[in-house]
C-alpha cells in the first residue's frame, strides 16, 4: 500500500509519465504521426513529432514538424507546442512563427490529455480547414508576441473553422 505520508516528492515522476507516453506513441502511433524516439529518449523534455497532412484534406502531401517542450510540472502544466522547421502549415489558427491557437494547449489543458491527444487535435484542426490562410492578426502577433506561446493570452478563434 502506498504510504499516506508525504515522502520525498519523486522528482522524476513527470519523466516516468513521459517515458510511458513515448513508449505507447512509438508502439501505436496515430495515422500520419511519428515521434522522433531517439531524440526524445536523449532529452525527455524536448520532443519532435513528424506529422503528415491527411489524405483528402488541403494539406495532403505536405509534412510538418511539431515541437513539444515539457517542464517538471507536466502533466499538471500543459506542454509548449509549436510548429517548427521550413514548412509551417498555412491555417487560420497557426501563426507564421509556428504558434498554434488551440485552447487545449493553455486554458483547456488537463492532465488527462497527452501528447497523443494533442497530436490528434492538431490533425483534426488541420483536416477540418476549408481555406488555407494565416490568422488575420498574423503580422502584428508575430512581431509582438512572447517566444513562449503559453504566455499569450489567446482570444480563441471560432473553433468551427
Amino acid at each position: 500500500m502506498q504510504s499516506l505520508k508525504a515522502g520525498h516528492l519523486d522528482a522524476s515522476r513527470w519523466e516516468r509519465r513521459l517515458q510511458k507516453e513515448l513508449m505507447s506513441l512509438m508502439k501505436e502511433p496515430p495515422p500520419g504521426v511519428e515521434v522522433d524516439g531517439d531524440q526524445a529518449e536523449q532529452n525527455l523534455s524536448l520532443w519532435t513529432v513528424h506529422m503528415k497532412g491527411a489524405e483528402g484534406t488541403l494539406y495532403e502531401g505536405e509534412s510538418f514538424q511539431l515541437q513539444f517542450k515539457f517542464s517538471p510540472k507536466y502533466p499538471f502544466d500543459s506542454p509548449e507546442v509549436t510548429f517548427i522547421g521550413s514548412n509551417i502549415p498555412v491555417h487560420p489558427h497557426v501563426y507564421s512563427n509556428g504558434h498554434i491557437c488551440l485552447s487545449i494547449l493553455t486554458d483547456d489543458w488537463s492532465p488527462a490529455l497527452s501528447v497523443q491527444s494533442v497530436c490528434l487535435s492538431i490533425v483534426s484542426m488541420l483536416s477540418s480547414c476549408k481555406e488555407k490562410k494565416r490568422p488575420p492578426d498574423n503580422s502584428f502577433y508575430v512581431k509582438t508576441c512572447n517566444k513562449n506561446p503559453k504566455k499569450t493570452k489567446w482570444w480563441y478563434h471560432d473553433d468551427s473553422v
Binding site: 500500500m1 499516506l4 508525504a6 515522502g7 509519465r17 510511458k20 502533466p75
Partner: peptide
Amino acid sequence: CLACTDISDPVLVFSCEERHVTCLDCFRQY
C-alpha cells in the same frame, strides 16, 4: 492515476462527475 498513470492504493477521487483519480503523490505535486 490521471497524472502518472500508475495504479496506486489508496487514491484521491475528485468530486467531479467523471470521478477523476490521482495517486496521493501526484495530488501533492498538483
